[in-house]
Simulated scan of single mutants.
Amino acid sequence: MHKKHTLISYFVLSFFWGLAACGGSQHSPVSGVKLGSFTRHEYRSDVGARSYKIYTPSQYRSDSDWPLLLDLHGCGSNADEEARWSRFNELAELAGLIVVYPEQTAEANGSKCWNWFLPEHQGRDVGEPAIIAGITEQVRASMSIDARRVFVSGISAGGAMANILAVNFPDVYASAMIYAGCEFKGTTCTGAVALLPAEVSGELAYQAMGSAARVVPVLVIQGDRDLQVPYPNAGLIVQQFLSSNDWADDGNNNNSIAREPTQSESGSKVGGHSFDIEYYKDANGCLLAEYWLIHGMGHAWSNAASDGSPRDILLTDALGPDVSSETLRFLLNHPRPEVGVSCYQITPR
């Protein structure tokens, strides 16, 4: 199936772009709509410590369980910048979602990159994965969170670390979005295409899941003009997850999960970039992977809000589709299944 369409966002955001709540409740200076709080917190454990910020929607109440998205910034960034570029705070206000933004430190990495490329930061109980998962648990302990609707996303180095978290904590994170990231243990992807075969990466991912192994749905996003993380790496990530899902669905690598897309389509933003989407489903019709390739886009947040600074101009692309809305659409449609249910049969966009 191949059809042409114009992207229609699942959330109406035009009134909210460029806003960032940074304390108590605020109102949009454009529409007057009440926004939630954006507050700073600290996490400390025997493994390490990090700061993080939480966006809490204005309608949050503790008498019901809320979905949570943990989102990881790229190199040199921070929670405020990531929230501005992704617009996840504004989206979360409309969708009813808590967003958590961990921050890397210059002490841990001189470029403030997550250390996804080091073996000591690729396992469940060590390094930054343990710290970030600890942040997730700290938020879950202090707020009313739906354990089946905890998600992880990230861009660039944050995308690579989001991959590591999805692999090592399938019992915590229901599904993942990986944007301009790298395959699990594929450490040569910066400025090049990782050399690790996706089938090997997928088997390593399955082994890392241990007794918590399960099928993990993933949304992968990439620009085809990305020189920092060349776009073939995105295909490796997709294939890595298809491979690990093949292992996880029945404990065998027996091609129970097809490696070819079962459906594809293309579209464009009016006056902007075109894109192709591939969907990968299992034999039961469960959507396991979705891959967006945006033509003409480099290493940048697509359709991001920008403050006009040189860094924002360099690392955002207003001509791209609204991948942030698509991220929430995908993740919220992929909660962690109940026991005895392999996944939910989600109709693609």
Rank of each mutant, 00 (worst) to 15 (best):
L287I: 06
A133I: 01
A141Y: 02
L94H: 00
T316F: 04
G202W: 09
L7Y: 10
C75R: 15
G271K: 03
I135R: 09
I294W: 02
S9A: 11
R349E: 11
S268H: 08
G235Q: 10
E278I: 02
I346Q: 07
P261S: 03
I237V: 14
Y55I: 03
G202A: 10
A79Y: 05
E81W: 15
L236S: 11
M297T: 00
I155L: 14
L315Y: 13
I277W: 13
A160F: 08
L219C: 09
A166P: 06
G235M: 06
Y291S: 10
L204R: 13
L72P: 10
D46C: 06
H2E: 08
V47L: 05
S243Y: 12
A176R: 04
V323Y: 07
N253D: 06
G181T: 09
A157Q: 07
E183T: 12
A194N: 09
A160N: 10
S342N: 03
S156W: 03
V33D: 13
A208F: 06
R50L: 13
V139G: 01
D276H: 15
Q239M: 04
R40G: 05
W66R: 09
G24S: 07
N115Y: 06
I145W: 11
I132Q: 02
A106F: 04
T316K: 04
A192H: 12
A174W: 02
N109R: 14
W66S: 08
R124P: 00
I221Y: 03
L70H: 02
S324I: 03
T39V: 04
G110D: 10
E82S: 12
V12I: 12
S45G: 07
I178F: 01
T187G: 14
L19A: 12
S62L: 00
G76P: 13
S302R: 02
N233R: 04
T105F: 02
S244Q: 12
L314Q: 15
K53F: 09
G271L: 02
L219D: 07
I54V: 15
G76N: 15
G134D: 05
H299S: 01
H5M: 08
D146S: 05
E42R: 15
R44H: 12
S77M: 13
A208Y: 05
H2I: 03
V220I: 10
D282W: 00
S86H: 06
V12L: 12
F169G: 05
D125W: 08
N89G: 08
Y52F: 15
F16R: 13
A180W: 01
V152W: 03
D249F: 01
I164N: 04
D71A: 15
L72T: 08
